Simulated assay, not measured.
Amino acid sequence: MKELSVVVFGGSGFIGSHLVAHLAEQGCRVVVPTRRYESGKHLILLPGVEVVEADINDDAVLRRLVHGKDAAINLVGILHSRRGNPYGPDFKRAHVELPRRIVAACAAEGVPRFLHMSALGAAAEGPSEYQRSKADGEMAARSEPTVAATIFRPSVVFGPGDKFLNVFARVQRFMPFLWIPGASVDFQPVYVGDVARAFAHALTDVKTRHLVYDFGGPTIYSLGDLVRLAGRYSGNPRRVFEMPMGLGRIVAAFLELLPGKPLMSRDNLDSMKVDNVVDPAIQRSTAAALGIRLTALEAVAPHYLRADHRFDDLRARAGR
C-alpha cells in the first residue's frame, strides 16, 4: 500500500484499534481523534499514528481533522440510546448526524474517499431503532457526490478485546447456567482482522467505491451455540436455556433503569427479531469479492478466551 494519510473516527475502540494497527503496518499515516487522550494512548507507539484530543461534534474541528487527508474512516457506533421514533436521539447523533457531518467536511476539504461502518441488518423499516438509524447513516454517508463512499455491514465482530464472546465467557465464570432471550437467533460472526483487511483493501481499490459490502464469517451459529462456545473456550462451560422473549423484554426494561450502559436493552431484543446473517439472495459484494479468506471463529476464540490468556499477555510484555 502506498503511503496514505487517513483519519479514523472511532479508532481507539475495539475494531478501530485493530484497523489502526493494520494501517500502520501497511505504511499509512493515521490520525485518531478521541475525546480523551488516555483512551487512545495504546496506539501511540505504532509507527505513523497520531492520537489527538478533539471534539468531533464541532464542524470546524472536523474540517481541520480531514484537511489534507486521502480518506476518512468512520467506525463510531453505539448499541444503546434513549428511545424515539424512528430512533432515539443518541442513535441519531452517532449513526446519522456524525457521518453526514464527516462527509460534509470531506467535501469541503477535497477529501475524495469515505469508508463507513454500518451493520448487517441495517434497514429503513427494520424492527429496531438501531437498525433503522444505521440505514439512515448509510444514506448520510452517500450524501456528498464528490466523496466516494464505501460501506461495510458486518455481523457481530469477534476477536481479542471484543465485547461479545468475552462478555459471555465472563458471565459463565459466576453463573451455574444461562437463561437468555433470543438463544435460537442466528448470527454470522466475523473476525476483526478480516474486517480490518477489508477496510484497508478498500482504501486503494477503486472498484470498491460507491459499494456496500455485507460481511459475515464462514459459519452461522445460533446465539445459544455462541454462548456455549464462549463457556467451553474459557473453561467454564454452562448449560444455556432460551428465555421467552416476552420475559426477556421485562428483564431488559429493568436493566435499562440501572446506572451505566445496560447489559441488554429492549432495542437489542428488537434487533434479534431477524437473523443476523448475510442473505445469499442479495447480490451485494462480500468478503470474497475483496479476496479475503475468512477466519474461522474456532481458529481464534479459544486462544483469547482461555483463562490464562491475560497472564500470557503479561509474560509477553515482560519478555518471558
Score class of each variant (00 low, 15 high):
K2G: 12
V6E: 04
G11E: 06
G11K: 00
G16E: 13
G16A: 10
S17A: 11
S17G: 14
H18Y: 12
H18Q: 12
A21I: 14
A24E: 02
Q26R: 05
Q26F: 09
C28D: 05
V32D: 02
S39D: 12
H42A: 14
I44G: 06
E50Y: 07
V51K: 06
A54S: 10
N57V: 10
A60Q: 12
L62F: 10
R64D: 11
R64Y: 08
V66D: 02
G68H: 13
A71T: 05
H80Y: 15
S81E: 06
R83E: 08
G84V: 12
F91P: 00
F91W: 06
R93M: 06
A94D: 00
E97Q: 09
E97V: 13
P99N: 11
R101D: 03
R101S: 10
I102P: 01
A104P: 00
G110Q: 02
P112V: 04
S118G: 05
G121V: 03
E125R: 13
G126S: 11
Y130T: 05
S133M: 04
A135D: 02
D136N: 08
R142W: 13
S143W: 13
P145M: 11
V147D: 01
A148H: 14
T150Y: 03
I151M: 10
F152V: 01
R153H: 10
P154F: 05
P154R: 14
F158D: 05
F158K: 00
D162Q: 13
L165V: 12
V167G: 05
R170S: 08
R173P: 11
R173I: 12
P176C: 14
V185T: 15
D194W: 00
A198D: 03
H201I: 04
A202E: 01
L203R: 00
L203M: 03
L203Q: 01
T204D: 07
K207V: 09
H210L: 14
P218A: 04
S222D: 07
L223T: 07
G224D: 06
D225N: 11
L226N: 02
V227T: 08
R228F: 00
R228V: 01
R228P: 09
M243G: 04
P244G: 15
M245P: 03
V251N: 10
V251K: 05
A252T: 06
A253R: 07
E256T: 03
E256I: 13
L257Q: 13
K261P: 03
P262R: 07
P262G: 11
L263H: 09
R266P: 04
V278M: 07
V278K: 05
V278E: 01
D279M: 06
P280V: 12
A281K: 10
T286C: 10
A289T: 11
A289P: 13
R293L: 04
L294S: 12
A299E: 08
V300R: 02
V300P: 09
A301Y: 01
H303M: 15
H303A: 07
D312Y: 15
